[in-house]
């Protein structure tokens, strides 16, 4: 575990810079998570940010899965190429 962590560390970057960079990245990640956006003023632990990030990505994955099912069914009933071409034109307008 120790060797793995040291191996992944960027060469030439000191620990202090890396820790400051990690803090900044976690703060930016926190802004992207709806669950954590409301607590902008509070300091949330890194573990909490990672947990909510995992939960949010899983929920987005589920949404894409559901939309894939829906699109699959809709495409089966929309067999007209001209109808789909009209959709494409409306998308590009």
């Amino acid at each position: 575990m120790s060797s793995r962590r040291s191996r992944s560390r960027q060469s030439g970057v000191s620990t202090e810079i890396t820790d400051a960079q990690i803090t900044d990245l976690i703060s930016k990640l926190q802004q992207l998570i709806p669950e954590l956006r409301a607590r902008r003023s509070d300091k949330v632990s890194a573990s909490k940010v990672l947990q909510e990030t995992c939960n949010y990505i899983k929920s987005l994955h589920r949404e894409v899965d559901d939309l894939s099912d829906r699109l699959s069914q809709l495409l089966a009933t929309t067999d007209s190429n001209s109808a789909q071409a009209a959709i494409i034109r409306s998308l590009l307008m």
């Binding site: 894409v64 929309t78 109808a83 789909q84 998308l91």
Partner: peptide, 15 residues
């Protein structure tokens, strides 16, 4: 997600 929702809505309304 936004794009697929919009696409599904367009397909559902029959272009």
């Amino acid at each position: 997600v936004r794009a697929m929702k919009a696409l599904a809505d367009l397909l559902a309304t029959g272009a």
